[in-house]
Simulated scan of single mutants.
Amino acid sequence: MTLNRRDALGLAALAAAPVSAQALTPVSSTQVAPPDPTETIRLWPDGAPGGERVTVTAQVTERSRDPSFHDRFAQYTTDPILTVMRPARPNGASMLLIPGGGYKWAVVDKEGLDIARPFAAAGVTCFLLRYRLPGDGWAAGADVSLQDAQRALRLIRTRAAADGLDPVRVGVLGASAGGHLAGLLTARADATYAAADEADMVSHRPDVSVLLYPVATMADPFVHAGSRTELLGPSPSAEQIERYSLEKMDWRGRPPTMLIHALDDASVPPENSLQLLATLRAAGVTTEAHLFQEGGHGFGIRLIAGRPAEVWPELVLRWGERLGWLSR
């Protein structure tokens, strides 16, 4: 078998990634993971753009051996989708969820469906994005994930009336590398692909943006090196680093943005959020930031239970109420 650069990096990351004993050891449990939502939306019904050189095969891997929860990640996505979680009592607000994975893969549960559940319980219709990755040979290169994020936001907004949603109350929440992608979606005004249909005539700008322990900078010393390598390659130019560093972008006129980070995050240093916070304030963006003493990286919902940072979804919801995004 011949491995390309993408395969080799993915296998090395899997070998090096810390895995909890809970994930490795079968657990006797009477609890079963909640069922997955069954509604999905294809982003590109006629095929994603720029795939002429793409030869990968999509796969989803399960890491959990505990029947009470899933811990899946998606790699080599070629047909990106939105998985829809509809609340029992929708309030008209919607949220695009962009999970992390260091641009190597996109997690499905920890920063996706697990996060969707408390927001859906509060009435928010959630759309979980499974996006394409920059190392898989797409013509758009570093912008390929952003193409999917822009298209996803536009589809949510275009479908809003039919779905009983408000087209001016469409938020985005991104975690880790997904926070970087959500930040690109929020900050960049330029379209990254040619219009395919009427959905591409509407704005891809979110109405509120939540960045959860985001990979923000591409510059040393605070960069998450793995995300930068996957996004920009092993030797990016100074121009590339600046172009994809959120704190270097023009945020003037951008929507209200919330930053959430743990100060003991050893994977994505909190300076990622602190530097971006200074940029947002200088640009006059309505901003709120929450820095927790402990929590590490990638805590999502389940891994922060019983610790101070577990309140973060409630903080987002209260902020959304004050902004008028959650209810009007």
Rank of each mutant, 00 (worst) to 15 (best):
A33M: 09
S209H: 06
G102E: 08
V215H: 02
W319V: 09
P234F: 04
E247D: 06
Q275M: 14
R302F: 02
V268E: 09
A187C: 07
N91C: 09
E230I: 00
A21S: 10
R5F: 11
G50S: 07
P256R: 10
S209P: 10
A161K: 11
T286R: 13
G51Q: 10
P270D: 11
G183A: 08
E198R: 00
V215K: 01
L173A: 08
T78F: 05
D109I: 06
G178L: 10
E294C: 06
V170Y: 00
P214N: 07
S327Q: 15
A16M: 03
Q293M: 10
G253H: 05
E239G: 08
H180K: 00
Q150I: 00
A48M: 10
W105G: 00
D148E: 01
W319L: 08
G137T: 02
K104L: 12
R151C: 05
Y131E: 04
R169D: 14
T55I: 08
A8N: 08
P67L: 06
P34S: 13
A177G: 01
E314P: 07
Q293V: 08
S64A: 15
L9F: 11
G137K: 00
R243H: 14
L173E: 02
S327V: 15
L303A: 15
G306D: 03
E247S: 10
S237W: 05
P34C: 07
H297S: 05
T38E: 15
P255S: 15
V202T: 03
A17Y: 07
G320E: 07
T25R: 04
A122L: 04
V215A: 10
A140S: 14
L317K: 04
D109M: 01
E111Q: 09
V19K: 06
D220N: 13
L317Y: 00
G123L: 06
W138E: 03
E239N: 12
S237I: 04
D7F: 05
G137I: 01
H224Y: 09
A289N: 09
L276N: 00
T125N: 11
N4Q: 09
